[in-house]
């Protein structure tokens, strides 16, 4: 149950952040792409949160401290390169994690087997953009580097074993997941002509306690907007 909440909240919160691009994306194709990725994530969130309870109550009536998503996914969109950096870090993680869950025999096997095929496209989308921006103009390269650097300190949290998926039977070896992630992300970043950020992934000043319900300041404002309609008009429909 706690694992469903953690994975479901990751998908829900990132879906909302990507939805914020509607009407603001740099080109029409990206407007559509980001909305489609958001929709995939929302579908995954609905399945996962329904394992825990009423999906609407969980999404719209929980307080900030009850959310179990990674701090990475709640970070504001920033510019397009910043969003792409967040997409790269998260979609590589989600793809590797769901591959392992799909190969196992637990309560998430069915969903993971389905979602992993969707996430493969999210990952490909992010990788192609990192290459294009990193290997683009001085301006695009600088922005891609800034995005990767700014979000790096939120990546360490991804590899803290999720409660409920921390036993050998879960099929997830978190240390192996971390090294696979590092290899994959390093490969993309280097092919883009950039270098992996040098700072710590966690510890010291680095962030990362979303799984324990501790979130960063922008998250409160995000859920205020996300929950406003439902709280003001319970049961509204149109």
């Amino acid at each position: 149950m706690s694992a469903a909440l953690a994975l479901g909240d990751d998908a829900l919160v990132l879906s909302h952040r990507l939805g914020e691009w509607a009407g603001h994306a740099p080109v029409l194709e990206e407007e559509v792409a980001l909305a489609n990725i958001a929709l995939d994530l929302l579908g995954q969130a609905r399945v996962l949160l329904s394992l825990v309870g009423d999906e609407d109550e969980l999404a719209y009536l929980r307080e900030e401290r009850a959310f179990r998503n990674l701090q990475l996914v709640e970070q504001p969109n920033g510019d397009f390169a910043h969003t792409i950096a967040r997409q790269l870090y998260f979609s590589v993680y989600q793809h590797l994690l769901y591959e392992r869950l799909a190969a196992g025999d637990g309560e998430f096997t069915g969903l993971a087997a389905k979602a992993v095929k969707e996430v493969a496209y999210h990952r490909d989308h992010a990788e192609q953009w990192v290459l294009r921006l990193g290997d683009g103009t001085e301006e695009s390269r600088g922005r891609m580097r800034s995005g990767l650097d700014a979000l790096w300190r939120f990546t360490g949290e991804m590899f803290q074993p999720v409660e409920g998926l921390d036993s050998p039977e879960s099929g997830v070896d978190w240390a192996a997941l971390r090294s696979s992630w590092l290899v994959a992300v390093t490969d993309v970043v280097e092919r883009a002509g950039l270098t992996l950020p040098a700072g710590p992934q966690s510890g010291g000043w680095a962030a990362g306690a979303g799984r324990q319900g501790l979130h960063t300041e922008p998250f409160g404002r995000m859920i205020a907007e996300m929950q406003h309609l439902h709280r003001s008009h319970p049961g509204a429909s149109w």
Binding site: E29, A33, I37, Q128
Partner: peptide, 29 residues
């Protein structure tokens, strides 16, 4: 390929180099 995502999640947007028409491709899943 113009975009991996088109009018719906299940489609990609492509363009024909020969006739220049854009078209949807039901992408493999």
């Amino acid at each position: 390929l113009l975009s991996r995502f088109s009018s719906t999640a299940c489609k990609a947007l492509r363009r024909c180099v020969a006739c220049r028409e854009p078209f949807d491709h039901f992408k493999e899943l």
